[in-house]
Amino acid sequence: MHRFAKPSVFLKLTGAMMPWMVALTVILTVVGLYLALIGSPVDYQQGNTVRIMYIHVPAAWMGLFCYVGMALCGAMSLIWKHPLADICARATAPVGATFTALTLITGSLWGEPMWGTWWVWDARLTSMLILLFLYLGYIALVNAFDDPERGSKAGSALALVGVVNVPIVKFSVDWWNTLHQPASVARMDGPSIDPSMLAPLLIMAFAFTGYYFIILVLRVRLELNQRRIRALQLSGLFDERAAANGDDDALAYDQGHNAGAGK
């Protein structure tokens, strides 16, 4: 576990896996799209709009999955203090936020023809909206510090607090909803899902998961690069000052504390 968490090992490992991941994701996406748009039957109640489900539901799953992933990374960074855990959490947030926003948008586009309204204060919609707020809060917090490492650490703590809160929010929104919900809106639960519809749903979900891992790897690399740039810039400044003063202490300090020199 610790071995894989070393940045150099991570880079090598993911570098080897990347072409396979991309190929797999592309194949899954093509097959998923074919099944979702052409190969699956029309729902007897909802007609063709059921095809929105093949985007909407996997996106909702990913929105939740990414948040749980962020919290797990936060826990790992808290317990084992892995530098990579923070970076993974940080790289996950934009993907999770994107999928959560997509859930809301596609849900809206599904609700308009089916329920006759773009938005209802339904328990699920509302919980999803709050999840989006949690993502936005995390992203804002992580980017609010001059030192990215400090931002990631604060973000990990927030993700943990958030994940404790998510069930409470979900429960309270459900409770609030049963009190206020007008009964006129049709529920989307519906009967158990037909296998011909389940297949595109699952394949799209896997395609989204593949997409998530590709973005995760790319963003972790981006983050590692940026940290290295920062470390180099700081050490560069140190060198300039040391050279100007003829000061050997600064150089000696720099040698050991390259990464922490910003504090």
Partner: peptide, 27 residues
């Protein structure tokens, strides 16, 4: 799509657009 084309294609289009934009921004 049985009259619902605009909703369905908008959903797929926005999803594709968002995912591609995120990918391009990352790259």
């Amino acid at each position: 799509m049985g009259g619902y084309g605009s909703y369905i294609w908008a959903s797929y289009g926005i999803a594709a657009l968002a995912m591609i934009v995120l990918l391009i921004a990352t790259l």
